[in-house]
Amino acid sequence: MSDFQPKIVAFCCYYCAYSAADLAGSMRLQYPPTVRMIEQPCSGRIDIRLILQAFEDGADGVYVAGCLEGDCHFLKGNYRAKLRVAQAKKILDDVGIGGDRVEMYNLSGSMGPRFAEIAHEMHERIKKLGPSPLNRKVEPSQLNCEAEPAAGQQ
C-alpha cells in the first residue's frame, strides 16, 4: 500500500486555518498535495452531514480546522465544530469506516508552520490507515449488519 495516496478533505475556517494556509504558502512551506482545502466562513459551519458526504464522495480522511478555543470570530463556532466532529467519529465507528479518519484541529491565522504540520500529520495517519473501506472492497461477513431471523419480513 506504499503507493497509496489518500484523499483528505480539510474544512478550513476563513479566519484561521485558511489564512494560516496562505501564510504557509508565503513561507514556502511544503505540505502534502493529498490535502484538499475547502474554505468555510467558520468551523461552526461544519455539519455532520458534510463530513459524511465527504466520505461518501470518496475521501479517505477529513479534518476540520478552526480557531483556537476562545478565539472564534463568531464566539462559539469552534466549540460546536468540536462536538460535531466527536459525533461524526462515533457514527464512522458505527458504520465501520473508523472514527480515526476524522479529526478536529485548532490553530490561529499566524500559525503557518502548524498548518503544514497538521497536513503532514493527517497525511501520515490516513496513509497508515489505508484507503477508506468505501474505496475498497471488504468481505460482507466483516460487516455489522447481519439480519435477525424473520425480522423485517413482510
Binding site: 455539519d47 455532520i48 452531514r49 459524511l52 458526504q53 466520505f55 461518501e56 457514527i91 458505527d94 458504520v95 465501520g96 469506516i97 473501506p133 468505501l134 471488504v138 460482507p140 466483516q142 460487516l143 455489522n144 449488519c145
Partner: peptide, 20 residues
C-alpha cells in the same frame, strides 16, 4: 430533516461496504 440525512448516509455507507 438533518437526522434523516445523517441516518440515510450512515446506512448507505454501511451497506456500500458489502455486496448489497
Amino acid at each position: 430533516e438533518k437526522e434523516v440525512g445523517v441516518l440515510a448516509a450512515s446506512l448507505r455507507m454501511l451497506r456500500k461496504q458489502g455486496d448489497r
